[in-house]
């Protein structure tokens, strides 16, 4: 990478901050340093392109966005998009993202990862992020399998599924992340499918715009290790909630739709509420003074004196 950047590239890398002359960027400007190494046909391509579309449509600059992922095929996403990124440990994306969001609440932070990463090993962070209503957008590329580790069951694998770790069929019940998120306190709960990228991009856009914790669970088929929940499977079954007359502010209806699984699997926005403040809005330390990360260090002398007086 020794070639010098062209002017557009420099702009794309977020060189200009002045709102008045914000560069009009296109999806191309968000191309990452390397191309994805996902298998051809992997659903994750659809999530990547939906995410870029959403960011472009919102007029965000690369330096204003940070993606935070865990580990998995899906979690490789930050390397494939031109934005700040953190590719953290398996399962830890939401914990790292929470710290980053509270420390710099001006960043648009998008956590991305897999079903194993988020609902399995990272499950505890997921629960607590939701109840805290941290202002994050969380996109789970749900392929109902562990892709990177070459095909074992995940927390969303259906009962009976045969994988390398369940050669005789899984006997466990899967997690249904949608009702879990609604009950858990997430304030924006959606499901997309990578076969409908435009629709998915709209859901992601809504999630980024939403102030609070937004979950977008995206069916993102693993063409290599999950032959049960394939593109064919989802194409036949997914139905738009909007076409079903669903009202995302109706809790009971949201729960009812969230439990639908079988011949009809709804996708779209299940649940949204705007009446709850996000964690950063509730935190008095952030009330004024801008992002914590940019504040000057040091203890004012009068406070230092008061702290010492407490000890005397």
């Amino acid at each position: 990478m020794s070639v010098s950047m062209t002017e557009t590239e420099a702009r794309a890398r977020g060189a200009r901050d002045d709102k008045a002359e914000r560069a009009k960027l296109t999806v191309k400007d968000f191309k990452g340093q390397v191309d994805p190494d996902w298998c051809p046909g992997c659903g994750d391509f659809g999530v990547l392109s939906a995410l870029k579309q959403a960011i472009v449509e919102l007029g965000l600059q690369p330096h204003e966005v940070m993606t935070v992922s865990g580990i998995g095929c899906s979690s490789n996403l930050p390397g494939y998009i031109n934005a700040y990124g953190m590719h953290t440990l398996h399962g830890r994306a939401l914990a790292v993202a929470t710290g980053a969001q509270l420390a710099n609440h001006e960043l648009k932070i998008i956590a991305t990862g897999g079903d194993g990463d988020g609902y399995g090993i990272g499950g505890n962070h997921f629960l607590h992020c939701m109840r805290r209503n941290v202002d994050l957008t969380y996109i789970v590329m749900n392929n109902q399998i562990y892709g990177l580790t070459t095909g074992q069951i995940s927390p969303t694998s259906v009962k009976g599924m045969k994988t390398k770790s369940t050669p005789f069929g899984s006997v466990e019940n899967p997690i249904n992340p949608i009702p879990l998120a609604i009950a858990g306190g997430a304030t924006y709960v959606a499901r997309g499918y990578t076969g409908h990228v435009k629709h998915l991009a709209e859901l992601i856009k809504g999630g980024i715009q939403h102030k609070g914790f937004a979950l977008i669970d995206a069916f993102s088929p693993c063409v290599t290790y999950n032959h049960d929940n394939s593109h064919e499977f989802f194409k036949q079954r997914t139905r738009m909630l909007a076409d079903m007359g669903h009202d995302p502010t109706d809790f009971n209806a949201a729960m009812e739709k969230a439990y639908m699984w079988g011949e009809v699997i709804p996708i779209g926005l299940f649940w949204k509420r705007d009446d709850l403040p996000s964690l950063d809005q509730l935190e008095p330390v952030l009330a004024d003074g801008g992002p914590l990360a940019r504040r000057p260090l040091g203890v004012p002398p009068e406070i230092a004196q008061a702290l010492i007086r407490e000890l005397m």
Binding site: R13, G14, A15, R16, H63, Y84
Partner: peptide
């Protein structure tokens, strides 16, 4: 993060 021009 957030610094223009240093995306990584």
């Amino acid at each position: 993060p957030g610094t223009p021009g240093y995306v990584h």
